[in-house]
Design a protein around this nucleic acid. Structure first.
Lengths: 250, 250
DNA sequence: GCATTGTTTTGATTTACATCAAAAAACATG
DNA sequence: CATGTTTTTTGATGTAAATCAAAACAATGC
């Protein structure tokens, strides 16, 4: 349960310039020297098995991570065992900024699947930020969009009814896939119903009913984790509250 | 309604080293030269009248602000006019980090009362961050606690019932006052019921009922905006879900 | 293959909260 | 201070979603 995967991790050579995600997690406009600085700073690539943790709340281990493959969820949990999922991180997303406040992580990060992440230690990160202003800007932007994403979620939880919440979620996942060059009409959900329900602040049963309702209304077609969007405009209309798609993650 | 207060603002000399809030918003451990750099970087002090806006969503005007007196609320609003309040900022709190993502603010900031803020432009901020590593660290920490605060609010909205939400809010406001050297047992709410209800994701009527209920149970005594906490331990017990008081703001 | 376990869906019932409506209190204005 | 306006509280009713319960379905292991 409390296994930290890092210890059993394989080190492997990092080559950001070859990575298919470079468009997403690299600051644009780095020259060769700067790119080399970054590549040397990346400490290692880490494998995490499904259900293992990347980090725990209060862990001192402070790094920034970039998801290369798989999926990670972050969550807060209460003394009495309830949890609130804060975000899902998919390939190209960065996580770990939560540790900025106190040099300790404020949430748990668990793999939803076998997952691969790049690790950049805070020390190296700090040094890089000192050397490369462009890197600093990029990081600020990353943190900013994390903040923005959480704000959108607050709006979702605070103001929307359950059907609207699901429509908003599906709509932004679709946008996200489009941005990444994948299909915006057909995709797999990276998480179980249980986790999605928790993230959206409702009971699993309610979530299931909302999926069924959207399906009855011919807006989507679902089987297991595969979602096909049949009527995008009506979906967007339902998700109508949404201000603007958040830049990153979910 | 859409008045930007900045234009009518008075410039005034800034003297951070004299400011009673320096403990809160200054990075600790600045030497004289560094402190002077900071004071010169602070562009001006701004007065905002009650109900005026400090900034609007999508405003390019990008600065970091420190509240000196009064109170500010930030909120997101939807096409159909509903809003979600994201935070309340009281003296000593910093705001404006939301603009990091896209160089534009992602939310509105409105004064709940006549308010005084210090303004630090992003340009100066960037320059300072380059020059003073300690400043960078401090800012990272500030953003981190903003992130943490929003996470706690997500937990509140996603998992707690209404009574628990109010108890959590009162409990953390009390903690906050204690940290600032004010009474933790008796204080004024800086916002109207309407705003607090929205922030906590419930109807005004429900909030009012919860105040009444806590009063009936002899846990608190309220008259208008004045709250006295009569039984702190039972209040904390109700707010039991809460993980840890957030560092800053509400 | 079948049994076991976990996940998802569907149905019946309860409930916490929203909504509607109006009184009471606080605040503002001439 | 009397009057209108806004804010807050209280009461009655309706409803969206939680909970309880169980069936259907997928995944896992033997």
């Amino acid at each position: 349960m409390k296994t930290i995967a890092l210890h059993s991790a394989k080190k492997s050579a990092v080559a950001c310039h070859n990575c298919s995600l470079s468009e997403l997690c690299l600051p644009r406009g780095l020259n060769r020297d700067e790119l080399e600085l970054l590549e040397n700073a990346i400490n290692k690539t880490v494998k995490i098995k499904k259900k293992d943790y990347l980090f725990h709340r209060d862990d001192q281990q402070q790094s920034i991570y970039a998801v290369k493959a798989g999926a990670i969820k972050t969550s807060l949990s209460t003394p009495d065992g309830e949890e609130q999922i804060l975000g899902f991180y998919l390939p190209g997303d960065l996580l770990g900024f939560d540790a900025f406040a106190r040099d300790r992580h404020t949430c748990d990060a668990q793999a939803l699947d076998d997952t691969l992440v790049c690790e950049l230690s805070m020390d190296n990160f700090q040094e890089l930020c000192g050397k490369l202003p462009i890197m600093r800007g990029q990081m600020m932007r990353q943190i900013g969009s994390e903040l923005e994403r959480e704000q959108m979620l607050l709006l979702t939880l605070g103001q929307m009814r359950t059907e609207e919440r699901l429509a908003t979620f599906l709509s932004s996942l679709s946008e996200r896939n489009k941005d990444r060059g994948f299909s915006s009409n057909e995709f797999n959900l990276p998480m179980a119903r249980h986790d999605l329900a928790n993230y959206l602040g409702m009971a699993v049963e309610t979530l299931s009913r909302m999926f069924s309702r959207l399906q009855e209304e011919k807006i989507i077609a679902v089987q297991h984790r595969l979602v096909k969007i049949e009527d995008m405009s009506r979906l967007k209309q339902l998700a109508h509250h949404t201000c603007r798609p958040a830049g990153d993650a979910l």
